[in-house]
């Protein structure tokens, strides 16, 4: 029983991270129908920038409280990622808005490669360690272990999602975003500045990505120029699972994927008598994705996208 509880906690934390990154994918896809492959790399850049700031601060004033140092890193990483995403959209994606579907997808792959290699040149080939400066409180719930950091990750990702939902549903910008997602042409006719809305979407997604990046590197204690790609891929799968273009769907998809991975890796070996083991962890994530797409292509919570993908 305590093992199952622990696996659910594991999945929940992992899923919260997927969900945060998935939000960025789902927002961009909802509006542009573009798989922004570079989104995972933006997450990585966020982690790297924050780590650089943290390193500098610790070098100058090692007596500062850890929480404050990490927070300062985050405060620099967020605008850095926002600026980066703004530039990517303007330079790489905007000229291709009317091009055939494949062109921006290829560009996105290109941007992803560029960001990875620039990061390698700037931050080196090494895995960068995240200094252990955060408080390490630990609790036991039903025999399972849970840490402060894990609680913060889950809480932060829920808050971010709620904030984003309010933004989309309750503000002027949000309404403009929804209108643009429905139809760029009609939205433009109604006086929406479509270019600004699309830029805003990228920039907001990047801010969330920066938060996710810092959380990932703090949680696992490392950052690397390669870390964004697989994270991005899984987060995209989570977004599709939940129903792309749908904020609650990204959250649900992320959490589900995290739990599926944790339970899959944890129990599949025992269930199949050792025939399949935890090496098939990624297979199950993708397998579930394929099943959902085949039987419910709009995702779990998606409604309106059934035919447009």
């Amino acid at each position: 029983m305590d093992i199952l509880t622990q696996q659910l906690i594991n999945g929940l934390v992992l899923g919260s991270i997927y969900a945060l990154v998935a939000l960025g994918y789902t927002m961009v896809y909802g509006i542009l129908e573009l798989i922004n492959f570079a989104h995972g790399e933006v997450t990585m850049i966020g982690a790297m920038v924050a780590l650089t700031v943290i390193g500098l601060l610790l070098g100058m004033a090692p007596e500062l409280p850890g929480l404050m140092v990490v927070f300062s890193g985050l405060l620099v990483a967020i605008p850095a990622c926002m600026a980066l995403a703004f530039a990517i959209e303007k330079v790489a994606y905007r000229p291709l808005r009317r091009a055939p579907r494949l062109a921006p997808l290829i560009t996105a792959i290109g941007v992803s490669i560029i960001l990875q290699n620039v990061a390698m040149l700037v931050w080196g080939r090494q895995y960068v360690a995240f200094p252990a400066i955060l408080p390490q409180g630990q609790y036991e719930v039903f025999g399972a272990h849970i840490t402060d950091l894990q609680l913060v990750i889950v809480a932060l990702s829920l808050t971010t999602m709620a904030g984003l939902w309010l933004l989309v549903e309750r503000t002027r910008l949000g309404r403009a975003m929804r209108a643009t997602a429905q139809s760029k042409e009609v939205a433009a006719l109604m006086g929406v500045n479509v270019d600004r809305v699309i830029s805003a979407t990228f920039v907001i997604g990047a801010a969330i990505a920066a938060i996710a990046g810092v959380m990932v590197s703090a949680y696992y204690g490392l950052a690397h120029y390669h870390m964004g790609f697989l994270l991005g891929l899984k987060a995209f799968a989570a977004a599709v699972l939940g129903g792309i273009g749908n904020i609650a769907g990204a959250m649900l998809g992320g959490l589900l994927l995290g739990i599926i991975e944790a339970l899959g890796a944890g129990y599949i070996g025992d269930l199949t008598g050792g025939f399949l083991g935890s090496h098939y962890q990624d297979v199950f994530a993708f397998f579930v994705l394929i099943l959902v797409l085949v039987f419910r292509p709009s995702g779990l919570l998606g409604e309106r996208v059934a035919n447009r993908a």
């Binding site: 798989i35 098939y280 297979v283 397998f287 292509p297 993908a309």
Partner: peptide, 24 residues
């Protein structure tokens, strides 16, 4: 199984298929 899918969804499913084959 992917007959009904088009565009980006097909892309992500084929990508998943690749990972499945490689992992096996």
């Amino acid at each position: 199984p992917t007959l009904r899918l088009r565009g980006d969804y097909l892309a992500i499913v084929t990508l998943g298929f690749h990972e499945i084959i490689r992992i096996f």
